[in-house]
Amino acid sequence: MRPDVTRWLARACADADARGLAELRPLLEALARSTHALRDADPDLTGSARDPEDAPDAAE
């Protein structure tokens, strides 16, 4: 899983535990897989910036 999603999941689970909602963990883990897929999706889908280093005509 992407490191940013892993960090998000850790914070979310810690907060859920602190609030007495440990049963949220499996739902958050499933959501994390979906968030990973969304963040990893083609930028043409999500509008996110492409890494200029990934461009086919990137200057050396």
């Binding site: 998000w8 958050l28 969304l38 963040r39 509008g47 996110s48």
Partner: peptide, 16 residues
């Protein structure tokens, strides 16, 4: 669960 979704991911989804 929905309260944990970040704004940036909501915006990604709206672009989607």
């Amino acid at each position: 669960m929905g309260r944990y979704i970040l704004a940036e991911d909501y915006v990604r989804a709206m672009h989607g």
